[in-house]
Design a protein around this nucleic acid. Structure first.
Lengths: 153, 153
DNA sequence: GTGGCTGCAAATGTTTTGCATCCGT
DNA sequence: ACGGATGCAAAACATTTGCAGCCAC
């Protein structure tokens, strides 16, 4: 389930943070672009449509706050840009892990839910002695559309 | 097997690139810190010990060249720094994939060889339609040393 | 000798910060 | 009306680039 406006306002109040139009505007922009992976600049441009007077610094500060509240996740697609997406705060525990599939041709990014990493983690723990708590998995390849154009084996 | 000085020189000549003291100095520094994951700044500091007159820009340009020659790999540990490590150019094909285990307590980074991802990739291909070519896996947890100090379940 | 390479400084692009003002509480 | 939040501009930071001089070939 998605974090809605009311829950967000409640959360801000709980934490003693002020409910400002700018903060609501950033959340609204992120909600509209649900499954996107936006850069700070892209979020800024989106927010400016509704709230033209917002400053870029405020967007950065708001993102920072949303990260701390675990409302958004930071994603590195390793293309030089830091990206953000609405997290899944209210989803059930098991599904909070999602992976990213990145098309090396068109750049499309697909999120994929489902944790198939447990066995892999277990084997890595056995081999290395690490006590693994979390993982970050990025898969690179060709999306359904781009496979047509490519010499797929 | 490691890329040694002679092979490096040969490779530069093959590509029509000049063998300069700066390029040798960067390779030497990287070789000495074999299993580290160094930032550009850290490489610069290391190289300056032996070659105090080298410029930071040259280090960046050399790293860029080494990346193109596939001698070093770029690693994103998502802590805000881009890091580099000597690649494994002469290792056998199957083992070129290595994963990184990052200790969330002491920051230690451990590389781990071995590709246990095949089954995982196959299942993701089935579910998503992606044609997967490569992956990037980061595991976060506690290293052997830090487990002592932590309330491990 | 010549063209690629280097060092320096300036430019770039992204993110952060200082500060006066503003506004939510 | 108090203190946190904002907008603006400046600063900070990593990385890239332009250019004159240098050095490997």
């Amino acid at each position: 389930m998605q974090l809605d406006r009311e829950k967000f306002i409640r959360l801000l109040r709980e934490k003693g943070l002020k409910v400002t139009t700018q903060r609501l505007a950033v959340l609204t922009a992120l909600s509209k672009k649900q499954d996107s992976h936006l850069t700070a600049e892209e979020i800024y441009e989106l927010v400016k449509v509704e709230s033209p007077d917002i400053g870029l610094a405020t967007v950065y500060r708001t993102i920072q706050m949303l990260l701390e509240l675990k409302i958004v996740d930071r994603i590195y697609l390793d293309d030089g840009y830091v990206r953000y997406e609405l997290g899944h705060v209210y989803e059930d525990e098991d599904s909070h892990h999602h992976h990213h599939l990145i098309c090396v041709k068109c750049g499309r990014v697909m999120s994929f839910q489902g944790d198939l990493m447990e066995e892999f983690e277990k084997r890595m723990e056995e081999k290395t002695g690490f006590f693994i708590q979390d993982h970050d998995v990025k898969l690179y390849g060709y999306c359904v559309d781009c496979q047509k154009d490519v010499d797929v084996k």
